[in-house]
């Protein structure tokens, strides 16, 4: 019994310490913004890493999501004689939920893992220590540009996901199953309101910042992985970064949705 209590207490303390550590990390990354030199060049690299390289995966996943939504939505809605609401269904599902969440998960999978691994290797080969001894803030150099990049990349890719998804819904619902294109698009137009777009972009911004900082933090703390070191520690950090970032994205999604709607 005592052991159980101790275990619970220890885990709670460790979780709180971890959260505090993470919060400090994020704050320092933001605070390092003005002092970081050549932020623009690093930012461009980061946008390339997170944004440009993720365009294929985001568009492909967006297209298939739209196709499936169109198919499933059409079959369900025709049962109620409401196939005309397909555009509403597809567009609102995409804008409010699927595009921000699936888009973020795709970017975490492709770019977040790469970031965690890269920073993990920086940590392992003392490159982070080297930056420190040169008087360069490693957070400013490694994390800040990526965090700032995520603030543009996630909204852009989320909107791209939405637009491609709408096209996918059109392809399966209209081109394949024969719903009138005008009915589909007019339902899309009338369904998506400014508030939906705002929710979509807000979610993308928050998911991006959280996910990218988690991945950076995970790589950054590679030397603190318990029981493993070297390349195993990098692999643990990468996995941990991706898993934590994905969970945090979904949890944040639930919170934002429940507060906004």
């Amino acid at each position: 019994m005592m052991l159980l209590l101790q275990a619970v207490g220890q885990n709670t303390l460790a979780t709180i310490a971890g959260l505090g550590d993470f919060a400090t990390f994020a704050t320092r990354a933001i605070a390092a913004t003005p002092a970081t030199r050549q932020l623009g060049r690093r930012w461009i690299r980061a946008v390339h890493e997170q944004g440009v390289r993720c365009v294929p995966v985001v568009t492909i996943v967006g297209l298939f999501t739209g196709l499936v939504l169109g198919l499933q939505g059409y079959y369900v809605l025709t049962r109620f004689g409401s196939a005309g609401a397909l555009g509403t269904f597809v567009s609102l599902t995409l804008t409010r939920e699927l595009a921000p969440v699936l888009g973020a998960l795709m970017i975490i999978g492709q770019a977040g893992s790469a970031i965690a691994a890269e920073i993990g290797i920086h940590r392992n080969s003392e490159q982070i220590d080297a930056l420190t001894t040169m008087g360069i803030d490693p957070l400013g150099y490694l994390v800040t540009p990526r965090l700032l990049a995520s603030l543009i990349v996630f909204p852009v890719l989320t909107v791209a996901f939405t637009l491609v998804g709408l096209a996918g819904g059109y392809l399966s619902g209209s081109a394949l199953l024969g719903l009138d294109a005008g009915v589909y698009w007019s339902a899309v137009h009338s369904a998506v309101q400014y508030t939906d777009v705002r929710e979509c972009l807000l979610k993308a911004l928050i998911f991006g910042a959280i996910a990218i900082v988690i991945c950076c933090h995970s790589g950054f703390t590679t030397h603190r992985r318990i029981g493993v070191s070297g390349s195993r520690a990098v692999s643990v950090s990468t996995t941990r970064g991706v898993v934590l970032a994905s969970i945090a994205t979904l949890a944040a999604d639930y919170l934002i949705t429940s507060f906004l709607v």
């Binding site: 461009i44 690299r45 946008v47 390339h48 944004g51 440009v52 365009v55 804008t95 543009i152 909204p155 852009v156 890719l157 909107v159 791209a160 939405t162 637009l163 007019s186 137009h189 009338s190 998506v192 309101q193 400014y194 939906d196 777009v197 705002r198 972009l201």
Partner: peptide, 28 residues
């Protein structure tokens, strides 16, 4: 090439966001 692709990404992306927001805000 990185600068070029990032430039295209950012410009097209912002254009898409703005278009999407205006389109949704003003409906049909």
């Amino acid at each position: 090439n990185i600068d070029l692709s990032v430039g295209a990404f950012v410009l097209l992306g912002i254009a898409a966001i703005v278009w999407f927001a205006i389109r949704a805000g003003a409906g049909v």
